[in-house]
Protein backbone atom coordinates (compact mmCIF):
# COMPACT_ATOMS: atom_id res chain seq x y z
CA UNK A 1 0.00 0.00 0.00
CA UNK A 2 1.26 3.45 -0.88
CA UNK A 3 2.06 5.55 2.13
CA UNK A 4 1.48 8.97 0.65
CA UNK A 5 -1.42 10.57 -1.08
CA UNK A 6 -0.82 10.25 -4.80
CA UNK A 7 -3.25 12.88 -5.94
CA UNK A 8 -2.75 16.47 -4.82
CA UNK A 9 -5.53 17.97 -7.00
CA UNK A 10 -7.78 20.27 -5.04
CA UNK A 11 -10.00 21.86 -7.69
CA UNK A 12 -11.69 20.36 -10.74
CA UNK A 13 -14.55 21.34 -13.05
CA UNK A 14 -17.67 19.25 -12.54
CA UNK A 15 -21.35 19.14 -13.39
CA UNK A 16 -23.48 19.66 -10.26
CA UNK A 17 -27.24 20.02 -10.14
CA UNK A 18 -27.15 20.22 -13.92
CA UNK A 19 -24.68 23.14 -13.94
CA UNK A 20 -20.99 23.35 -14.73
CA UNK A 21 -19.19 24.19 -11.49
CA UNK A 22 -15.73 24.24 -10.06
CA UNK A 23 -15.43 21.71 -7.28
CA UNK A 24 -13.19 22.37 -4.27
CA UNK A 25 -12.10 19.03 -2.84
CA UNK A 26 -11.29 20.56 0.53
CA UNK A 27 -14.70 22.17 0.82
CA UNK A 28 -16.36 18.91 -0.11
CA UNK A 29 -15.18 17.36 3.13
CA UNK A 30 -17.50 19.60 5.10
CA UNK A 31 -20.35 18.07 3.13
CA UNK A 32 -19.42 14.46 3.85
CA UNK A 33 -17.42 13.78 0.68
CA UNK A 34 -14.00 12.70 1.85
CA UNK A 35 -11.06 12.64 -0.55
CA UNK A 36 -9.36 9.28 -0.83
CA UNK A 37 -5.71 8.89 -1.62
CA UNK A 38 -6.67 7.60 -5.07
CA UNK A 39 -7.08 10.18 -7.83
CA UNK A 40 -10.64 11.46 -8.29
CA UNK A 41 -12.09 9.03 -5.77
CA UNK A 42 -14.03 9.84 -2.61
CA UNK A 43 -15.64 8.20 0.38
CA UNK A 44 -19.23 9.40 0.65
CA UNK A 45 -20.48 9.37 4.22
CA UNK A 46 -24.18 8.81 4.74
CA UNK A 47 -26.11 10.08 7.75
CA UNK A 48 -27.28 7.23 9.99
CA UNK A 49 -28.20 8.69 13.41
CA UNK A 50 -27.83 6.06 16.12
CA UNK A 51 -26.64 3.61 13.45
CA UNK A 52 -30.22 2.68 12.66
CA UNK A 53 -31.72 2.24 9.22
CA UNK A 54 -34.86 0.65 7.87
CA UNK A 55 -34.28 -2.47 5.79
CA UNK A 56 -36.07 -0.76 2.89
CA UNK A 57 -33.45 1.99 2.91
CA UNK A 58 -30.61 -0.44 3.46
CA UNK A 59 -31.58 -2.37 0.33
CA UNK A 60 -31.68 0.87 -1.66
CA UNK A 61 -28.37 2.08 -0.19
CA UNK A 62 -26.79 -1.26 -1.11
CA UNK A 63 -28.04 -0.86 -4.67
CA UNK A 64 -26.61 2.68 -4.92
CA UNK A 65 -23.30 1.66 -3.32
CA UNK A 66 -23.02 -1.27 -5.70
CA UNK A 67 -23.56 1.03 -8.66
CA UNK A 68 -21.19 3.85 -7.68
CA UNK A 69 -18.40 2.27 -5.62
CA UNK A 70 -15.62 1.48 -8.10
CA UNK A 71 -14.47 -1.31 -5.82
CA UNK A 72 -17.92 -2.45 -4.63
CA UNK A 73 -17.21 -1.78 -0.96
CA UNK A 74 -18.67 0.19 1.92
CA UNK A 75 -17.18 0.93 5.33
CA UNK A 76 -19.10 1.13 8.61
CA UNK A 77 -17.65 4.26 10.17
CA UNK A 78 -16.70 4.55 13.84
CA UNK A 79 -19.71 6.81 14.30
CA UNK A 80 -22.20 4.29 12.99
CA UNK A 81 -22.61 5.85 9.57
CA UNK A 82 -22.15 4.08 6.31
CA UNK A 83 -19.46 5.24 3.93
CA UNK A 84 -19.59 4.35 0.25
CA UNK A 85 -15.97 4.07 -0.86
CA UNK A 86 -14.28 4.66 -4.22
CA UNK A 87 -16.87 7.04 -5.65
CA UNK A 88 -15.73 9.10 -8.64
CA UNK A 89 -16.51 12.81 -8.15
CA UNK A 90 -17.91 12.90 -11.70
CA UNK A 91 -20.71 10.63 -10.44
CA UNK A 92 -21.63 12.85 -7.46
CA UNK A 93 -24.55 14.55 -9.18
CA UNK A 94 -26.26 11.34 -10.23
CA UNK A 95 -25.48 9.59 -6.98
CA UNK A 96 -26.74 12.40 -4.70
CA UNK A 97 -29.91 12.43 -6.76
CA UNK A 98 -30.48 8.76 -6.01
CA UNK A 99 -29.55 9.13 -2.32
CA UNK A 100 -31.98 12.01 -1.92
CA UNK A 101 -34.73 10.08 -3.67
CA UNK A 102 -34.65 7.30 -1.07
CA UNK A 103 -34.76 9.83 1.79
CA UNK A 104 -31.13 9.45 2.87
CA UNK A 105 -28.77 12.34 3.50
CA UNK A 106 -25.04 12.85 3.33
CA UNK A 107 -23.27 13.46 6.66
CA UNK A 108 -20.53 15.96 7.32
CA UNK A 109 -17.13 16.62 8.81
CA UNK A 110 -15.68 19.82 10.24
CA UNK A 111 -16.51 22.20 13.09
CA UNK A 112 -20.17 21.49 13.70
CA UNK A 113 -22.58 19.24 15.58
CA UNK A 114 -22.02 15.78 14.09
CA UNK A 115 -24.45 12.94 13.51
CA UNK A 116 -25.34 11.63 16.99
CA UNK A 117 -24.46 8.04 17.92
CA UNK A 118 -26.46 5.76 20.20
CA UNK A 119 -26.78 2.20 21.45
CA UNK A 120 -29.98 0.18 21.05
CA UNK A 121 -31.50 1.67 24.20
CA UNK A 122 -34.59 0.64 26.09
CA UNK A 123 -36.60 -0.28 22.99
CA UNK A 124 -35.10 -3.76 22.74
CA UNK A 125 -31.98 -4.00 24.90
CA UNK A 126 -32.78 -5.56 28.30
CA UNK A 127 -30.24 -3.30 30.03
CA UNK A 128 -31.52 -0.15 28.34
CA UNK A 129 -32.95 2.56 30.58
CA UNK A 130 -33.51 5.37 28.09
CA UNK A 131 -34.86 5.77 24.56
CA UNK A 132 -31.44 6.46 23.07
CA UNK A 133 -32.59 5.91 19.49
CA UNK A 134 -35.48 8.35 19.79
CA UNK A 135 -33.18 10.95 21.31
CA UNK A 136 -30.48 10.46 18.66
CA UNK A 137 -33.13 10.95 15.98
CA UNK A 138 -34.30 14.14 17.69
CA UNK A 139 -30.75 15.50 17.95
CA UNK A 140 -30.06 14.68 14.30
CA UNK A 141 -33.19 16.51 13.16
CA UNK A 142 -32.77 19.50 15.47
CA UNK A 143 -29.04 20.09 15.88
CA UNK A 144 -27.09 18.32 13.14
CA UNK A 145 -24.77 20.74 11.37
CA UNK A 146 -25.00 23.53 13.96
CA UNK A 147 -21.69 25.43 13.55
CA UNK A 148 -19.32 25.21 16.54
CA UNK A 149 -15.65 26.03 17.22
CA UNK A 150 -14.51 22.50 16.51
CA UNK A 151 -16.23 19.18 15.97
CA UNK A 152 -19.00 18.57 18.48
CA UNK A 153 -19.95 14.96 19.10
CA UNK A 154 -23.04 13.86 20.99
CA UNK A 155 -23.90 10.30 21.98
CA UNK A 156 -26.51 8.40 23.95
CA UNK A 157 -25.90 5.28 26.03
CA UNK A 158 -28.89 3.54 27.52
CA UNK A 159 -27.14 2.24 30.65
CA UNK A 160 -23.89 2.48 32.63
CA UNK A 161 -22.19 -0.14 30.43
CA UNK A 162 -21.88 2.88 28.14
CA UNK A 163 -21.46 1.18 24.76
CA UNK A 164 -21.91 4.58 23.07
CA UNK A 165 -18.86 5.82 25.01
CA UNK A 166 -20.33 9.00 26.45
CA UNK A 167 -17.04 9.48 28.31
CA UNK A 168 -15.34 10.24 24.97
CA UNK A 169 -17.92 12.69 23.65
CA UNK A 170 -18.06 16.46 23.71
CA UNK A 171 -21.50 15.94 25.21
CA UNK A 172 -22.79 12.57 26.33
CA UNK A 173 -26.02 11.31 27.86
CA UNK A 174 -25.95 8.00 29.72
CA UNK A 175 -29.12 6.36 31.01
CA UNK A 176 -29.53 5.94 34.78
CA UNK A 177 -32.27 4.74 37.12
CA UNK A 178 -32.57 5.50 40.80
CA UNK A 179 -33.67 2.41 42.72
CA UNK A 180 -36.07 2.58 45.64
CA UNK A 181 -36.81 -0.25 48.06
CA UNK A 182 -40.07 -1.05 49.85
CA UNK A 183 -40.08 -3.25 52.91
CA UNK A 184 -43.44 -5.10 52.65
CA UNK A 185 -43.01 -7.15 49.45
CA UNK A 186 -39.33 -7.94 50.29
CA UNK A 187 -38.80 -11.54 51.37
CA UNK A 188 -35.12 -11.15 52.22
CA UNK A 189 -34.12 -13.53 49.42
CA UNK A 190 -30.75 -11.72 48.94
CA UNK A 191 -30.84 -11.94 45.14
CA UNK A 192 -30.40 -8.15 44.86
CA UNK A 193 -27.13 -8.21 46.75
CA UNK A 194 -25.95 -11.02 44.46
CA UNK A 195 -27.15 -9.18 41.37
CA UNK A 196 -25.42 -5.90 42.30
CA UNK A 197 -22.02 -5.87 40.63
CA UNK A 198 -20.97 -2.68 42.43
CA UNK A 199 -21.13 -3.97 45.99
CA UNK A 200 -23.73 -1.31 46.73
CA UNK A 201 -26.15 -3.79 48.34
CA UNK A 202 -25.30 -5.95 51.33
CA UNK A 203 -27.77 -8.40 52.84
CA UNK A 204 -28.64 -8.12 56.49
CA UNK A 205 -27.16 -11.27 58.08
CA UNK A 206 -30.37 -11.93 60.06
CA UNK A 207 -33.21 -10.89 57.77
CA UNK A 208 -31.55 -11.06 54.35
CA UNK A 209 -32.97 -7.65 53.59
CA UNK A 210 -30.87 -5.15 51.63
CA UNK A 211 -28.55 -2.54 53.11
CA UNK A 212 -28.09 -0.02 50.31
CA UNK A 213 -25.01 2.19 49.88
CA UNK A 214 -25.97 5.03 47.55
CA UNK A 215 -22.36 6.16 47.24
CA UNK A 216 -21.40 2.93 45.48
CA UNK A 217 -24.50 2.77 43.27
CA UNK A 218 -24.00 3.52 39.57
CA UNK A 219 -27.77 3.42 38.84
CA UNK A 220 -27.80 0.47 36.43
CA UNK A 221 -31.05 -1.06 37.72
CA UNK A 222 -29.72 -4.61 38.08
CA UNK A 223 -31.37 -4.82 41.53
CA UNK A 224 -34.73 -3.80 40.12
CA UNK A 225 -34.55 -6.33 37.30
CA UNK A 226 -33.41 -9.14 39.59
CA UNK A 227 -35.88 -8.58 42.44
CA UNK A 228 -38.49 -11.36 42.35
CA UNK A 229 -41.15 -9.46 44.32
CA UNK A 230 -40.91 -5.90 43.03
CA UNK A 231 -39.60 -4.61 46.37
CA UNK A 232 -36.92 -2.77 44.38
CA UNK A 233 -38.51 -0.41 41.90
CA UNK A 234 -37.56 2.57 39.74
CA UNK A 235 -37.97 5.87 41.53
CA UNK A 236 -36.92 7.91 38.49
CA UNK A 237 -35.14 7.53 35.16
CA UNK A 238 -32.85 10.09 33.61
CA UNK A 239 -29.47 10.85 32.14
CA UNK A 240 -26.02 11.21 33.59
CA UNK A 241 -24.65 14.11 31.52
CA UNK A 242 -20.97 14.13 30.58
CA UNK A 243 -19.11 17.07 29.08
CA UNK A 244 -15.76 17.60 27.41
CA UNK A 245 -14.63 14.13 26.48
CA UNK A 246 -12.72 13.33 23.29
CA UNK A 247 -10.63 10.65 21.70
CA UNK A 248 -8.02 11.29 19.03
CA UNK A 249 -4.33 11.85 19.60
CA UNK A 250 -4.82 13.12 23.12
CA UNK A 251 -7.88 11.51 24.67
CA UNK A 252 -9.69 13.26 27.50
CA UNK A 253 -12.27 11.65 29.73
CA UNK A 254 -15.46 13.67 30.02
CA UNK A 255 -16.55 15.27 33.30
CA UNK A 256 -19.79 14.25 34.90
CA UNK A 257 -21.84 17.44 35.11
CA UNK A 258 -25.42 16.47 35.96
CA UNK A 259 -27.40 13.48 37.18
CA UNK A 260 -30.98 12.35 36.58
CA UNK A 261 -31.64 14.89 33.88
CA UNK A 262 -35.03 13.90 32.42
CA UNK A 263 -35.61 13.30 28.68
CA UNK A 264 -37.53 16.51 28.20
CA UNK A 265 -34.55 18.57 29.36
CA UNK A 266 -32.09 17.04 26.87
CA UNK A 267 -32.73 19.70 24.17
CA UNK A 268 -32.24 22.52 26.69
CA UNK A 269 -28.97 20.94 27.90
CA UNK A 270 -27.67 20.72 24.33
CA UNK A 271 -28.74 24.25 23.40
CA UNK A 272 -27.34 25.93 26.48
CA UNK A 273 -24.11 23.91 26.37
CA UNK A 274 -23.53 24.96 22.76
CA UNK A 275 -24.36 28.54 23.72
CA UNK A 276 -21.72 28.40 26.47
CA UNK A 277 -19.19 26.78 24.16
CA UNK A 278 -19.73 29.38 21.43
CA UNK A 279 -19.42 32.23 23.95
CA UNK A 280 -16.39 30.87 25.82
CA UNK A 281 -14.52 28.68 23.35
CA UNK A 282 -12.22 29.76 20.58
CA UNK A 283 -11.99 28.55 17.00
CA UNK A 284 -10.29 25.18 16.71
CA UNK A 285 -10.75 24.35 20.39
CA UNK A 286 -12.71 21.32 21.61
CA UNK A 287 -14.98 21.73 24.66
CA UNK A 288 -12.45 19.69 26.66
CA UNK A 289 -9.94 22.52 26.31
CA UNK A 290 -12.48 25.27 26.91
CA UNK A 291 -13.34 23.68 30.27
CA UNK A 292 -9.69 23.69 31.32
CA UNK A 293 -9.18 27.28 30.17
CA UNK A 294 -12.42 28.82 31.43
CA UNK A 295 -13.20 26.47 34.30
CA UNK A 296 -15.94 23.94 34.87
CA UNK A 297 -17.49 26.16 37.55
CA UNK A 298 -18.16 28.79 34.91
CA UNK A 299 -20.04 26.20 32.84
CA UNK A 300 -22.01 24.82 35.77
CA UNK A 301 -23.01 28.31 36.83
CA UNK A 302 -24.22 29.06 33.31
CA UNK A 303 -26.16 25.78 33.25
CA UNK A 304 -27.94 26.38 36.56
CA UNK A 305 -31.31 27.33 34.97
CA UNK A 306 -31.29 23.99 33.11
CA UNK A 307 -29.63 21.63 35.58
CA UNK A 308 -31.24 23.13 38.69
CA UNK A 309 -30.83 20.50 41.39
CA UNK A 310 -29.25 17.91 39.12
CA UNK A 311 -25.78 19.48 38.75
CA UNK A 312 -22.89 17.39 40.05
CA UNK A 313 -20.76 20.18 41.43
CA UNK A 314 -19.04 18.29 44.23
CA UNK A 315 -18.50 15.15 42.18
CA UNK A 316 -17.14 17.04 39.19
CA UNK A 317 -14.70 18.96 41.37
CA UNK A 318 -13.55 15.78 43.02
CA UNK A 319 -12.87 14.20 39.63
CA UNK A 320 -10.96 17.22 38.42
CA UNK A 321 -8.43 16.93 41.27
Amino acid sequence: MDRFIEDKTTKVPVKLEGQEKKLDFMELKTGGFIKQRQKDLFAVRLRCPGGRMSTDKLVEVARIAHRYSKKSVVHFSFRQSLEILYVDYKDFDAMIGEITKIGMKVASCGPRVRVPTACGGCEYNPNGLTDTQGLADMVDKKYFGTPTHHKFKISFSGCPIDCARTREMDLGFQGVVEPEWDEPPCTGCTICSEACKEDAIQSDPDTGKPIYDAKKCIWCGDCIRACPTGAWRAKRYGHLVRLGGKHGRHPVEAREVALFVPDEKVPAVIERTIEWYLANGIRGERVAKTIVRVGLDNYLKFMEPVFEGSALVGRAEKEAV
Binding site: C189, I191, E194, A195, D222, R225, A226
Partner: peptide, 29 residues
Amino acid sequence: SGEPIQNVPKSIKEEGHRIVEVKKEDDHF
Protein backbone atom coordinates in the same frame (compact mmCIF):
# COMPACT_ATOMS: atom_id res chain seq x y z
CA SER B 1 -24.16 -17.86 43.10
CA GLY B 2 -22.29 -15.34 41.02
CA GLU B 3 -23.19 -14.94 37.37
CA PRO B 4 -26.09 -17.42 37.27
CA ILE B 5 -27.99 -15.77 40.14
CA GLN B 6 -27.20 -12.31 38.69
CA ASN B 7 -28.67 -13.14 35.30
CA VAL B 8 -31.19 -15.99 35.36
CA PRO B 9 -33.85 -14.50 37.69
CA LYS B 10 -34.15 -11.28 35.64
CA SER B 11 -34.38 -13.23 32.38
CA ILE B 12 -37.12 -15.42 33.88
CA LYS B 13 -39.02 -12.31 34.96
CA GLU B 14 -38.62 -10.79 31.48
CA GLU B 15 -40.23 -13.94 30.02
CA GLY B 16 -43.32 -13.27 32.12
CA HIS B 17 -42.88 -15.92 34.84
CA ARG B 18 -43.07 -15.31 38.56
CA ILE B 19 -40.38 -16.17 41.06
CA VAL B 20 -42.41 -17.22 44.09
CA GLU B 21 -39.76 -18.51 46.44
CA VAL B 22 -36.02 -18.05 46.87
CA LYS B 23 -33.84 -19.93 49.33
CA LYS B 24 -30.12 -19.52 49.76
CA GLU B 25 -28.30 -22.76 50.51
CA ASP B 26 -24.53 -22.46 50.98
CA ASP B 27 -23.10 -21.37 47.62
CA HIS B 28 -26.25 -21.86 45.62
CA PHE B 29 -29.88 -20.74 45.41
